[in-house]
Nucleic acid binder design. Structure first.
Lengths: 338, 338
DNA sequence: AAATCTCTTGCACGCACGTGCAACAACCGG
DNA sequence: CCGGTTGTTGCACGTGCGTGCAAGAGATTT
């Protein structure tokens, strides 16, 4: 219990010589107050340094204005870009972002959602990890809306936003084929995230469709270091690949660095590489990586548009799954022709 | 006003056959409840899916448990690393992070702080931008604690955490001197942030102390692209520098890329570079940048330790300013000797 | 002038919670 | 058997706010 207290509507009312209701009404959109009392209230509020208590307001309205963002690996370029966009657009929509980091200790998504419920968040957006079905139901039952980004398990209830993997697989394959590449590889992490596995499956399937085979290697956590290790694994093989699709730009950067500095390979002449995410580093002149850009702004806007839509909570007939396209950004890590 | 309603303590009480006070007490640390009623309440709560409403609890206790993080350029490697650490440690301290992004539109720090006040955040941590003195006072008067990171203006009241610039300037200079560099430069952005300007001043001062001069160039926003531009400006001069201290690792990466790929310079043989922040990319093998690591974890822990300390708000006799040391990480962008 | 309408205002209640106070039961020592 | 102690429980009030309801003040119509 803290000692000092915020200034309340009561004090403003007394100072302005009106009732507390009048104060409440001046700060409520669309309430009926005369211009004069409104003016007096605003002046008194200004002088006292009054600010509406959103905790109490949320209590009354049963709507806190809080949206909870649940994510791990926040310091990663892609994640931080998505978070940036989400927070920005949330603010524009008049909501405020509460943030929960689920690094270290797993099962923590459930704990995160519990926190969200405790603070009566209107909605939660989950960027990584996946809640138990029981928790999901709890959220929905409490009127919480849920958005899952790039996590296409078949959870009923929440909105799912993800990217079209099949199209990606096909486009990478035709790019490699046009470059005259023969020995294809896919470099992945062991994270096993649906989006990563989806890209892998799509690429392999596309290759099989053209009668080609793909060497798939997975290692470690989805970062630069894993990319280097994967390069060592793949480039020391007898049948060295001449085209690698990396599940992530971070993997691709590590892969490229190892390929060039340790193996002395020239990219794209001897080795073609495609990444995914279009992180800022992909455009740096040490990489100039051909990659897929996630439509980050659109992901954010679709998510927020959905969760601020005011409909029946069980959402029969509502859209529950959105599939977006990733845009291929041509740079210089894939050659045009052999 | 939303239609459906959360489960309230009242309902739990009815289901468990006790009074609402009993429910409240089972969920309050250190309250007096018998083991039996506690058990019954917990079971009823579990079955109904009850969660304490932290909005209402915050209302009563005058302590919301919310800490507001105010920052811009969140997708930047250094910022996102700091945010990661802060959110993680806040959670460990039993608090929750509310996040406000101050990109686009300035004066937005004030608006951010207003939001923090509206949600009755116990404290705010400001990573960039600077609030008006009036707002600062408002916060303190309302019992909000304030932490400014790397923003050493002489605001009274908030805790200020920043790094020892003088030591940094001196160490870079001796490193360059030992490498036999003659023509020094400092590459900075036009942001004019206190921390950036502090490094600049310290480096220039250290050079003057040894009777050397420094070419200072500033350009644009603190990012990769600005680093490239600065490289062009500095490396096309008649007297081309052979040692550059970049205010930021991002600037340094851009600078290195331009120096190598556009000017064909070899680093560190023909050009020595030092950066600041020790972002992840600094360790990538395309850069291997010698740089200063900010003690991110310590910054976060000191901030949180301070703001969860429970003392008189006006804080006479309390520490209000913390000065930490940045650690020099030796990699390969500065040669050992000529 | 009377009747009707519109606009504003205050009262009182409710939202979900914490907590001081008194009542009460149980237990113990005398 | 009684007074005192300890531990638990419910009542009632307070936290800051929104809002339905009815009363009041003007303004307009008949």
């Amino acid at each position: 219990m803290r000692s000092k207290i915020f200034v309340s509507a009561q004090e403003v009312a007394e100072k302005a010589g009106v009732s507390r209701s009048a104060v409440s009404r001046t700060f409520t959109q669309g309430a009926s107050v005369s211009a004069e009392t409104r003016e007096r209230v605003l002046r008194a509020a200004e002088e006292l340094g009054y600010h509406v208590n959103h905790l109490a307001r949320g209590l009354m309205r049963n709507e806190s204005g809080i949206v909870c963002l649940i994510a791990s690996e926040v310091a990663t370029p892609y994640r931080s870009a998505l978070l940036r966009e989400l927070t920005l657009q949330l603010q524009n929509a008049g909501k405020i972002a509460m943030f929960i980091n689920t690094d270290r200790s797993d099962g923590s998504v459930d704990r995160a959602l519990q926190q969200a419920i405790r603070y009566r968040a209107d909605a939660s957006i989950i960027l990584s990890g996946l809640p138990d079905k029981s928790i999901t139901e709890l959220c929905l039952r409490n009127g919480q809306r849920l958005v899952l980004i790039n996590r296409d398990e078949d959870q009923p209830g929440p909105l799912r936003i993800n990217l079209d993997d099949d199209e990606v697989g096909g486009r990478v394959l035709t790019a490699f084929a046009r470059a005259g590449c023969r020995r294809l590889a896919f470099a992945n992490s062991e994270a096993g995230t649906p989006s990563l596995m989806g890209r892998e499956r799509a690429f392999v399937a596309a290759a099989h469709g053209l009668g080609m085979d793909v060497i798939v290697k997975r290692h470690g956590w989805t970062g630069y270091e894993a990319g280097r290790v994967l390069a060592h694994r793949l480039l020391t093989a007898k049948e060295r690949p001449d085209a690698v699709f990396c599940a992530t730009d971070l993997l691709a950067c590590g892969f490229m660095d190892a390929a060039r500095h340790q193996f002395g390979l020239s990219i794209p002449d001897e080795l073609c590489i495609v990444g995914f995410d279009d992180i800022e580093q992909a455009s740096w002149s040490s990489y100039e990586l051909t990659t897929f850009a996630q439509p980050v702004a659109e992901i954010a806007s679709r998510a927020i548009e959905w969760l601020s839509r005011f409909g029946p909570k069980d959402g029969k007939g509502e859209v529950q799954s959105i599939r977006l396209k990733a845009e291929l950004i041509w740079r210089k890590s894939v050659r045009a022709k052999k």
